[in-house]
Nucleic acid binder design. Structure first.
Lengths: 160, 160
DNA sequence: TCCGTTTGGTTGTTGCGTCAACTGAACCGC
DNA sequence: GCGGTTCAGTTGACGCAACAACCAAACGGA
């Protein structure tokens, strides 16, 4: 008894799928080209940069960036190799590890942010009316409610 | 002179990023689990299934699914190994290759479709009001206009 | 008709994400 | 405090996508 999609739904879905498929590419390529960063790496650095002491537990960073721990561990290793992040064992809980943004990481982030924001504008936000931005926000909230029930997601973004 | 994001924009963007990050996962895992298909493989089979003779040139399939040719070539190779698709050299242009859906491929698609549609509903469409579905469609169109200027994208979806 | 270019596609390498397995530290009941 | 369980994180193997290099067939001009 499948409820197939009507024309409106089909159209909306097709477009959403296309966006989901294409958007990462344009974000990645700009960041890669200009700052040699993955979008995910950028977000991770950005989240760290706003944390107190620029430092966060791995699991907290994973929750904030919506990454699994294995993924995050690999990414942090790569960032650590490049000197952008440091691993600091947590004294309070010896199982835990803190990831800490280095000065080099901060500098890279500061350098990368304007170009990224510009890309976000030209690829998405500037193509929408203010009303559509609000609608997008609402729609996003509704969908996230289903995908990510506990809304741990609060990824930091290119704010100042 | 960077124009930073205001609160509305930031919120909308963060949510969009989260959706773009999380949505593929839920689609992939349902399809993988129930039909051992990637979402992209599903779309490719679906597009083929609606083509005349269930057959399409590689480049046409690539355009319709929004894939690069190298990617498509690999995917078709895997599908071919599983007997879901056949490569048929094009007699008219000996450089060209046609990808053709086999009966097994058709059967798998028919079997996979209801579960996928159900997933699409529960993960997205059923969480939105009809008005939001229309808004999403408009927003998608606007963004795609920027990403995919030539709108080659017309990915086939789980229609009937 | 011959050479250069463009088109259509395939192949190999590299890099990132996922999954499964594992280690060590903290917690819990008794 | 002792044994089992859960928690935090790391590691290694595998799969898929992107990129670059490549090959062959078609086109196009002189």
């Amino acid at each position: 008894m499948t409820r197939w999609l009507d024309d409106q739904e089909l159209e909306a879905w097709m477009r959403l799928v296309a966006v989901v498929e294409l958007l990462p590419g344009v974000l990645e390529s700009q960041l890669k080209r200009d700052s040699d960063l993955t979008h995910f790496e950028y977000v991770a650095l950005a989240v760290l940069s706003e944390a107190p002491e620029r430092r966060l537990r791995m699991s907290a960073l994973g929750a904030a960036t919506n990454a699994t721990l294995p993924r995050l561990s690999h990414v942090v290793s790569r960032l650590e190799d490049r000197g952008l992040v440091r691993r600091v064992p947590c004294p309070a809980d010896r199982r835990a590890t803190n990831a800490e943004l280095t000065d080099a990481g901060w500098a890279l982030l500061v350098e990368a942010a304007p170009g990224h924001v510009e890309q976000v504008r030209t690829a998405v936000l500037d193509l929408l009316t203010p009303a559509q931005v609000r609608q997008l926000s609402e729609i996003g909230a509704a969908v996230l409610g289903g995908l990510d029930p506990d809304g741990a997601r609060q990824a930091a973004m290119p704010r100042r």
